[in-house]
Design a protein around this nucleic acid. Structure first.
Length: 967
RNA sequence: AGGCGCGUAGCUCAGUUGGUUAGAGCGCUACCUUGACACGGUAGAGGUCAGGAGUUCGAGUCUCCUCGUGCCUACCA
């Protein structure tokens, strides 16, 4: 049977087919082992859940490519690899999306009412919420789809409620009126993290407040004149002599007259917060609209009237500014102040302004009733504060960060953390499980897992559930253990361990971007440590912090930027859509691009040129396969049997983990001495290049292993690339090509070479498969088809990852082949130098030491002459310039050819070269005459330099001779 | 205001504890359509490692300063 592949690789033909196959065959689903003692290493990784409203972007693709490479790698190493996918309900984003949709239909959330609105969001989610996961499937992400979750699933909602109630009962959740960051556009509180700061040029207004007794005035400086309607004091520094006489006096707040009535009087008070050097040294105090002023208000027991409503419009019935937007009110008030001569000065002033991350609207500090999580407080049940545990987990190295720098950033933040505002005035999300008693005499709050019938304090039946929902990050912060079955309470309500928790918690690794380090990573650490410390270990013992962490390793990757290193953004119009790129170049090429550029700690400037290069790489692999398949066919026709016996495929594969009975662990980790290929039996016969390539393969396995252990995706990718293209295709294949002979005269040699090539190629496919799962899957199956046997596993992803010990090495043979490579390169170079046309076959004269000569003449006679296009290789004794061997690798070769070159140009080139060598010689000599160097530098360095110096001398003499010959 | 990065070939980036002549991909130049592949082959050109000082026998690598650049954190009206 002849196996034919198209000449050019077209990823679109195969990728969709395999992506579907992997999902349909459930090849990456893992069922939970019955026992934790089954001897396998677990590799558990949680997919950072994309927003349901999300569309795949390059950041996702980088994130998922890295996780997929690691997961596939671990799986092929025989680990039980579980990668849990899911989506996040994304409170604000999703609510906004549906609200926009409603607006286009001419209706609104408020018109619909809460219940109908929430129903509507569920509908939306059902219709469109799966889009991002479908896109993921195209990336080849080898996730366990049987474990897919959504953060608002029933089981997760129950867990969220449980977490809230427990925190409340432990005294760690409280409710109170505080200044929070308010987004007036979507009308909810947001956390500090959801506020982005931007330096903007604004104005500092100096406004005169007349003293109530008419004896003068005091001038305050403010950037927000409109909030003066809510002023309740003016503060000055007690040490500020300009104002000490005024402390205790009252001033009238201009423009505060309501319905033509008098202006409000407020006190001048002393407070350290007022800095004499800033502005006028006097500051107006508006406790309801500024966090600092709120603090002053608390210190001095001031009233805190709100004068802006939830949409940031003035709400002061009777005031001429009532109903005006905050900025319109400001403008009008400035005009009025000016008219009264109270606007003393307007100065330019840059200050940092808070913008809502989601909506871009200027954040309004707002006094409102919110729920908070006390992170620095000791629970009333004992133990450490949430923050303390989260700090200890990292300082005690139960969690490690890569790059390490992020550990510092994390601890810096965690050590300065404030209480977390967890309530949101949204409708879409986990509704807070608290009920307010409507009885005005009671007003108590009942927090409960189930809907209570009566108030827990006064037993009134007139209760109503809290309208706020929880911050989305509250539920996603619980995911590492809620996805594994927490809380699973026993009859007393205490969380019990589940089989999933027993096997897969703590998870192994978290891969994510730094942008959600605080939002998500820190929250998972806080909540994970806090909640799972109560969960017993599989053996029933008490869990310690090391086993309570949500993950043991955190790998933080960079940002994907455009080719000019600009951040991708819709407004800049430089967003690269991964799907477009995939359609143009193939998933494997894009994955490989990201991997090859993913060096820890640096951002990725995504370049299409690079992707083009890796598409070419895929094409190279494809064509190497074509070459191989073609020759397998030829061999068959010639009656030569090619086989891949005993290939090291896990005959049971990681699938064996899924059975109820665990297999012998040794079966999953074959001893490294096992030689997979039939070539090993005839190693003694194997030609030098085969020994060389096997040695290289072994090196590459080692390099990839090391690189992936250290998250050096770039090094791993480059190492494989170099091996496949540079070693396998450029050298090994070219040599084998000459060896193959189907005439019937060299059947044994041909069979040996071809079998070795099959083995190397098959191993290379396995090595590549975590990076390029599609093309390797296709070619791997195709290889077995070409060999005429069934593939030994359903997917290459369930075979063994090549290990260094899988391949025999022969260092001496490898060094011979390297000499041969140098010899060939030198020959090619010298023929170009001599101006020999590429097609022309010419004679060469060469000198070499005995070993190299033997290799060239005995073992590589037709090969060398083919590769350098020589008609004759004339041996002329040992290299006269070198005399006795410095090493076996010393040789020289030059074409016997009448140079047809520009003599003067060549003379110039040689002169330049001579000058360069002279400089090197001088510096080497200087170094070698340096007593201190000889005394202090290690011997091998000095020896190296001596050898080097000898080489340079030879080169110098040769160049000299060549130049003399021209003259 | 503090803190953290980065500056290496035309472009995008590697360069582990200081050690022989600083690497890769793309781009560029010349030649080659050879029975896997022109998404290819062969051979080349291209770098005072931002600048300065210091430590050292030896610095792209360690220290300090300067310049440029990016990011994070922060309640200064």
């Amino acid at each position: 049977m002849s196996y034919e592949l198209p000449k050019a690789y077209d990823p679109s033909v195969i990728e969709e087919r395999w992506a579907e196959y992997w999902v349909k065959e459930r090849l990456f689903d893992v069922s939970t082992p019955k026992s934790t003692q089954d001897g396998t290493t677990k590799f558990t990784i949680l997919l950072p859940p994309p927003n349901v409203t999300g569309r795949l972007h390059m950041g996702h693709m980088l994130n998922q490519t890295e996780m997929d490479i690691l997961t596939r790698w671990h799986r092929m190493l025989g680990d039980l690899a579980v990668w849990v996918p899911g989506t996040d309900h994304a409170g604000i984003a999703t609510q906004m999306m549906v609200e926009r949709q409603l607006a286009s239909e001419g209706t609104s959330r408020k018109e619909l009412g809460r219940e109908a609105f929430v129903q509507r969001v569920w509908c939306w989610r059902k219709l469109y919420g799966g889009a991002i996961l479908d896109q993921m499937k195209r990336l080849g992400a080898s996730v366990d789809w049987s474990r897919e979750y959504f953060t608002m699933d029933d089981r997760l909602s129950i867990a969220v409620k449980e977490a809230f109630v427990r925190l409340y009962e432990q005294g760690l959740i409280y409710r109170g009126a505080y200044i929070v960051n308010w987004d007036p556009s979507i009308q909810t509180a947001v956390s500090d993290l959801e506020v982005e700061h931007e330096e903007r040029l604004g104005k500092l207004y100096h406004i005169r407040y007349p003293l109530a007794d008419g004896t003068g005035s005091i001038t305050v400086a403010t950037t927000r004149p409109e909030t003066m309607l809510g002023d309740t004091a003016v503060a000055v520094n007690p040490t500020d002599e300009r104002y000490t006489a005024l402390i205790g006096k009252k001033v009238c707040v201009p423009l505060t007259g309501v319905n033509g009535g008098p202006e409000r009087e407020i006190p001048i008070l002393a407070d350290d917060w007022a800095k004499p050097e800033f502005g006028t040294g006097a500051v107006k105090v508006t406790p309801a609209h500024d966090p600092n002023d709120f603090a002053i208000g608390q210190r001095h027991n001031l009233a805190a009237p709100s004068i802006l409503d939830e949409t940031a419009h003035v709400a002061l019935p009777g005031s001429p500014y009532d109903g005006l937007d905050r900025y319109a009110a400001r403008d009008l008030m400035l005009v009025d102040l000016e008219a009264r001569g109270l606007l003393v000065a307007v100065k330019d002033h840059t200050n940092s302004i808070g913008l809502s991350q989601r909506t871009g609207v200027v954040i309004e500090p707002r006094l409102s009733m919110q729920w908070f999580l006390a992170v620095n407080k000791t629970p009333n049940t004992g133990g450490n504060s949430i923050a303390k545990n989260a700090i200890d987990a990292v300082t005690e190295k139960h969690i490690n960060f890569t790059p390490e720098m992020y550990k510092k950033i994390y601890l810096e933040w965690m050590n300065n953390i404030y209480d977390w505002c967890i309530s949101r005035q949204l409708w879409w999300g986990h509704r807070i499980p608290a009920w307010h008693c409507k009885d005005p005499k009671c007003n108590a709050i009942t927090v409960s897992r189930d809907t209570p019938k009566t108030c827990g304090t006064c037993n009134s039946t007139d209760i109503v559930q809290e309208t706020d929902v929880l911050d989305t990050w509250f539920s996603s912060g619980l995911l590492p253990f809620t996805t594994l079955g927490w809380p699973n309470p026993d009859t007393t309500g205490k969380p019990q361990i589940t089989p999933d928790l027993a096997n897969f918690y703590p998870t192994t690794l978290l891969v994510t971007g730094f942008d959600i380090l605080f939002f998500w990573v820190a929250r998972m650490i806080m909540l994970g440590c806090h909640f799972t410390l109560d969960v017993p270990m599989p053996d029933g013992s008490k869990r310690d912090l090391a086993n309570a962490v949500p993950f043991k390793e955190v790998y933080i990757h960079g940002l994907v930027r455009d080719a000019d290193r600009q951040k991708m953004s819709k407004t800049k119009g430089n967003v690269i859509n991964p799907i477009d790129i995939i359609e143009r170049f193939g998933t494997d090429a894009v994955r490989f691009t990201l991997a090859s550029m993913a060096s820890p700690g640096t951002d990725i400037a995504f370049s299409e040129a690079r992707t083009e290069g890796y598409r070419a790489f895929a094409n190279k692999i494809w064509n190497a396969a074509r070459f191989l398949f073609m020759n397998i066919d030829r061999a068959k026709e010639a009656g030569i049997s090619v086989s891949l016996q005993n290939a090291v495929i896990l005959s049971e594969g990681p699938q064996s983990h899924r059975g109820p009975e665990s297999k012998d662990p040794d079966a999953l980790h074959p001893a490294s001495t096992v030689q997979p290929f039939s070539i090993s039996e005839r190693w003694a016969e194997a030609p030098i290049e085969t020994r060389w390539i096997f040695g290289h393969l072994s090196d590459v396995c080692h390099e990839v292993d090391l690189a992936l252990t250290n998250y050096r995706f770039d090094e791993a990718a480059n190492s494989i690339y170099q091996f496949f293209w540079g070693d396998l295709c450029d050298w090994y294949l070219e040599v084998v090509k000459v060896r193959l002979d189907f005439s019937g005269e060299q059947n044994a040699a041909t069979e040996l070479s071809l079998s070795a090539l099959v083995a190397v190629f098959e191993a290379a496919l396995r090595l590549l498969s975590p990076f390029m799962p599609f093309i390797t899957e296709e070619l791997w199956h195709a290889l077995y088809a070409a060999l005429g046997v069934a593939s030994p596993a359903k997917t290459i992803a369930l075979t063994r990852f090549p290990q260094p010990g899988d391949f025999l090495c022969d260092k001496l043979a490898a060094s011979y082949f390297e000499s041969l490579q140098e010899f060939i390169t030198l020959a090619r170079s010298s023929r170009k130098q001599a101006g020999v046309p590429d097609k022309e076959r010419i004679a060469f004269r060469f000198s070499a030491q005995d070993e190299v000569r033997e290799i060239i003449e005995l073992y590589y006679d037709p090969i060398v002459s083919t590769l350098i296009r020589s008609s004759e290789l004339r041996f002329e004794g040992p290299d006269p310039l070198r005399g006795n061997a410095v090493s076996s690798a010393d040789f020289d070769i030059e074409p016997i050819y009448e140079r047809q070159i520009d003599v003067s140009a060549e003379r110039e080139r040689l002169k330049k070269e001579l000058a360069r060598l002279e400089k090197i010689l001088a510096s080497e000599e200087k170094q070698l005459n340096n007593e201190a160097y000889l005394a202090k530098a290690p011997a091998h360095i000095v020896d190296g330099l001596r050898k080097q110096h000898a080489e340079t001398k030879i080169l110098y003499d040769k160049t000299r001779a060549a130049l003399d010959a021209l003259n």
